[in-house]
């Protein structure tokens, strides 16, 4: 019997994005540049995170017309963001036949207690996480893909490194525990016990894990892959740089050949200036997007 929207069909698309780069784009023209540079998908949004930071105010789901224009411009999958907990924005994106929904801390949260019940939707969801417990809570709500939160729009990879190490380290620690210890581990992680057991046995999450939040250079992209990311999201890092086309190609190259320093070096030449970065201390606690989500 034919079935659509099974969990396997949802995670299946995430599996196909592995080893690739998903790029933030704000219009059809940027989407085309991203596709031509080798992006495996694009994230359609009205403002890249660096501009959301600069402008302030409430950041919401993108205009459906802009999303449709991007869908018409490229043949690769198109993703878009909804505010945390804003299930009607998710319903709208699904009605546009979006390929993937990002329930994202980069937008202003709509619900300070609950995330979207992602099992209710046929479209797959990706969610951010800062550690293993958060990743497993999102998977428990139906997420088909996890990404590190990092600190979007900063061009500073330090938080993405922290989150990826937390997630991968958390998985390794679970693997060292006996079955008797897993219920307590689940309590401490505030994560569903069934998922904790699954991760302890398999040694990985039941969904792909990507990096997001702060990648600005080819070396950043390769660093995250070597730390265990299975692919990369790049937001402001491409279209806030001097030469987006070349930088996009170079980050794609470094994501594929992440263990090949000669190729990363060659890709890093003549890229022009990277986006200007922001030191974490300069953000203050209120400026941190990663603390959104629960």
């Amino acid at each position: 019997m034919a079935e659509e929207a099974t969990f396997r069909v949802k995670t299946g698309l995430a599996e196909m994005l592995k080893g690739g780069v998903i790029m933030d784009v704000v219009d059809a023209e940027q989407a085309k540049i991203a596709e031509d540079a080798g992006a495996c998908a694009v994230m359609a949004l009205e403002r890249v995170p660096a501009d959301i930071r600069r402008d302030g105010g409430v950041a919401r789901m993108s205009n459906p017309r802009m999303i449709k224009e991007i869908q018409d411009a490229v043949s690769i999958p198109v993703m878009a963001k909804v505010r945390i907990g804003h299930f009607v924005e998710a319903q709208v994106l699904q009605s546009l036949s979006i390929d993937f929904i990002d329930e994202s801390e980069v937008l202003t949260p709509a619900d300070e207690t609950n995330h979207v019940d992602k099992f209710e939707f046929d479209a797959p969801f990706v969610c951010g996480a800062t550690n293993l417990g958060e990743a497993l809570r999102r998977i428990g709500e139906g997420a088909a893909m996890i990404r590190s939160k990092g600190e979007a729009g900063t061009g500073n990879v330090v938080e993405a490194v922290r989150h990826m190490r937390e997630i991968v380290g958390g998985i390794k620690r679970l693997g060292t525990l006996s079955s008797t210890e897993l219920p307590t581990a689940a309590k401490e992680l505030q994560a569903p016990l069934e998922l904790v057991r699954e991760v302890a046995t398999s040694g990985w999450l039941p969904v792909p894990v990507f990096c997001a939040g702060g990648i600005a250079t080819p070396a950043d992209a390769a660093l995250m892959m070597q730390l265990g990311a299975e692919g990369n999201f790049v937001g402001s890092g491409i279209f806030k740089s001097d030469d987006p086309e070349r930088r996009a190609k170079a980050i794609v190259e470094a994501t594929t050949h992440f263990n090949d320093a000669d190729r990363i070096a060659a890709a890093s030449e003549q890229l022009g200036e990277a986006m200007p970065g922001i030191e974490m201390a300069a953000l203050g606690e209120d400026g941190r997007l990663a603390s959104r989500g629960w």
Binding site: A2, E4, V9, L13, S97, D99, F100, A123
Partner: peptide, 26 residues
């Protein structure tokens, strides 16, 4: 697009007996 992705039981002549659960993603 992704919303039309599906899985179904299909036969593959000369490769396997019976059917296999085939996952079609875009």
């Amino acid at each position: 697009r992704q919303l039309a992705s599906f899985e179904d039981d299909i036969e593959v002549d000369g490769v396997l007996e019976g059917t296999i659960r085939a996952v079609f993603i875009r």
